[in-house]
């Protein structure tokens, strides 16, 4: 049984839109950093190694 042509067309179109939707929150976050001048990654500490004595 084959997938309907109309449906497969819509799937391709909607996947293209989804790529933009996935990126949108990341782009908005970067835009907010650009506007506010925040650089939170500069203050982050590297992961600490847990050493047992």
């Amino acid at each position: 049984m084959q997938i309907e042509k109309e449906i497969s067309k819509k799937i391709v179109r909607d996947i293209a839109i989804s790529i933009f939707l996935y990126a949108l929150p990341v782009l908005l976050m970067l835009l907010s950093f650009y506007i506010t001048g925040e650089r939170p990654w500069q203050n982050s500490k590297p992961a600490q190694l847990q050493l047992s004595k």
Partner: peptide, 12 residues
């Protein structure tokens, strides 16, 4: 990515 602010992390 621990530097990502909480609400942005939530949204993403």
């Amino acid at each position: 990515f621990s530097w990502v602010p909480f609400w942005w992390g939530f949204f993403i």
